[in-house]
Amino acid sequence: MDIRESQLPAGVHGRVRTTLLGYLSLTKPRVIELLLVTTIPAMLLAHRGTVDPLLILNTLVGGLLAAAGANTLNCVADADIDKKMKRTERRPLARDIVPRSHALVFGLALSVASFFWLWWTTNMLSAHLAAATIAFYVLVYTLLLKRRTTQNVVWGGAAGCMPVMIGWSAVTGTIQWPALVMFLIIFFWTPPHTWALAMRYKEDYAAAGVPMLPVVATERQVTKQILVYTWLTVAATLALALATGWLYASVAILAGAWFLVMAHQLYGGVRRGEPVKPLRLFLQSNNYLAVVFLALAIDSVLALPTLFTV
């Protein structure tokens, strides 16, 4: 037997595996983790401790499809700049693993599927919120804001806040004030989280022509903005305590103090001219958000007495 023929199946298998992983990578699975961290607690708070597990599953599936579709379309739109940035140069479209036209069809298919899935399994409001999120993320943030303003992640970050709205509406069929407060928590959390990462990779953004705040402002200006938004984040988490029990309130206070200490340390280090590690704040901000929303989920499941009647 010809050796090359015997090796063909393995080669084909490798190419298929690479292509499938490429399509998976387009959806940015690690970014989708935010969906899981925030959607389930929002649903549990909406109807404290008595949410149908099947409804949670269906909402997560619809949300996953929506996030995957939006992220894929984002990769299509950003294919040119992804090739210029070291942080993103290994993405599938930057390496030509997946044809751009195929990725576009894939992203649109996921987006359409998310709308009909949520419409079928939850309600029309949730479906429309998911569709609006995709449109905002791709058309407003990616195509309009990202390459034109330093406030790109401030306003564009609104798309990442929508999973809590979708989760709440899936349970209640409405949008009420606790959902809006959860929206604000993530809205205010996004700038310090993203700018800390951008401080570490500002040369990448500069090379790609993306005017992220750390590219056009001094480190002192950036860290001051990070500090302001961190305070707003913590304030929003404390406002949500009016709709929760003592467990969430306690964790929100302790975690908020920890988050503020990190932000003040970063700002103080820059003011003193000391070497700083902004990536530490970026990584720990993920832990902060996870801890706060985990406490919210447990508090809601236990149906602890609320500090305010929702």
Rank of each mutant, 00 (worst) to 15 (best):
L20H: 04
E33Y: 09
A159V: 14
S169E: 02
W155G: 12
L279W: 01
K84S: 13
V292I: 15
L304E: 11
V210G: 08
V310P: 06
N71V: 02
A46C: 09
T18W: 02
W195C: 07
A130Y: 03
R17D: 07
K277V: 11
E33L: 13
R200F: 00
K277E: 14
R148L: 01
K277C: 05
A208I: 03
P99L: 06
L108G: 02
D299F: 00
G62W: 09
A130K: 06
V270Q: 08
L57T: 14
M199Y: 02
I298P: 03
P29N: 10
Q151W: 03
W189C: 06
V210N: 07
R147K: 15
L110P: 12
L184Q: 07
L294G: 13
P305K: 03
M262P: 00
V210I: 15
L266W: 12
K224Q: 09
L304C: 06
L143T: 08
P92Q: 10
Y137F: 12
V301D: 02
V310K: 10
R100E: 12
L129A: 02
L20N: 02
R280K: 14
V140H: 08
G157H: 07
V276D: 04
V261A: 07
H193I: 06
L45G: 07
S25W: 00
M182F: 10
V234A: 09
V228A: 11
T121M: 09
I134A: 10
D2E: 15
Y229L: 10
I298H: 07
L55V: 11
W231M: 09
T27W: 02
Y201W: 13
Y141N: 14
A158Q: 06
V251E: 10
A113D: 07
R15I: 06
V222T: 15
K202G: 02
G14P: 01
R87D: 00
A207F: 00
G11P: 00
M124H: 10
V291H: 06
L247A: 09
L139C: 13
L279Q: 09
P178E: 11
L144F: 11
H102K: 12
I226H: 03
I97V: 15
E203H: 13
L60H: 05
